[in-house]
């Protein structure tokens, strides 16, 4: 029984990106092992796999954590090519990280050669309300700009420390991907090539 289930479920490759120190690993770690290390954050393995039920449907997530590779830009496109859905993380306490979100999303479109793609933008560290410098409205605005042409883009606020919305962000991403696949987004949104006659 279990064999047939695992056989029928195709793994979903999720790539977690974002600038350094925004909590990519913490989010992934919380989702995978329900742990948060306050004083010390161990970097988890590069990729890990987790199965869960989302909307009564089995899903297997292969999550690729890209922590530490923010400066190693040449390989970024390589592993981006592997992703079927993206989690773009920024920290609400870090303006620089937020400013990179837009360029990262653009890079996803370019690498995947699509105009629409399942992307979840996560504003992390909202437990640190005192240090907050990115308003929710600011992030919403950014995502709404993308939603005009990419309906599979959403924003959510998370806290890896308090485990707020940690599961939700991954589950919503899977839902977006399902929607995208159901609408045939992979074929429809591909840039059409000009044909002669």
């Amino acid at each position: 029984m279990s064999k047939s289930v695992s056989k029928s479920v195709k793994p979903i490759k999720i790539v977690v990106i974002g600038s350094g120190g925004v909590g990519k690993s913490a989010l992934t770690l919380q989702f995978s092992k329900s742990k948060f290390f306050l004083d010390y954050d161990p970097t988890i393995e590069d990729s890990f796999s987790k199965s869960c039920y989302i909307d009564n449907e089995m899903a297997r997530l292969d999550i690729l954590d890209t922590a530490g590779q923010e400066e190693f830009t040449s390989m970024r496109e390589q592993y981006m090519r592997l992703g079927q859905a993206f989690l773009v993380v920024f920290s609400v306490t870090d303006r620089k990280g937020f400013e990179e979100v837009d360029s990262l999303i653009q890079l996803i479109y370019r690498v995947k050669d699509r105009e629409a793609f399942p992307i979840m933008v996560a504003g992390n560290k909202i437990d640190l309300q005192n240090d907050r410098c990115i308003d929710q409205s600011l992030a919403q605005e950014l995502v709404q700009r993308h939603q005009e042409f990419n309906p599979y883009c959403a924003y959510i606020e998370t806290s890896a420390k308090t485990r707020l919305n940690v599961d939700l962000v991954f589950h919503d991403l899977v839902r977006l991907l399902r929607l995208y696949n159901a609408k045939g987004g992979s074929k429809q949104a591909k840039k059409s090539k000009c044909s002669l006659l």
């Binding site: 590069d46 990729s47 890990f48 199965s51 292969d62 530490g68 390989m75 592993y79 592997l82």
Partner: peptide, 26 residues
């Protein structure tokens, strides 16, 4: 499904050397 693969597919394994060097820095 092999136990030593831990549910990860081939591309994930092939990606590890690419990720290893930056991780040293981290």
């Amino acid at each position: 499904r092999h136990p030593s693969c831990g549910g990860l597919d081939l591309t994930a394994f092939l990606l590890t050397p690419v990720q290893r060097l930056p991780r040293y820095q981290l």
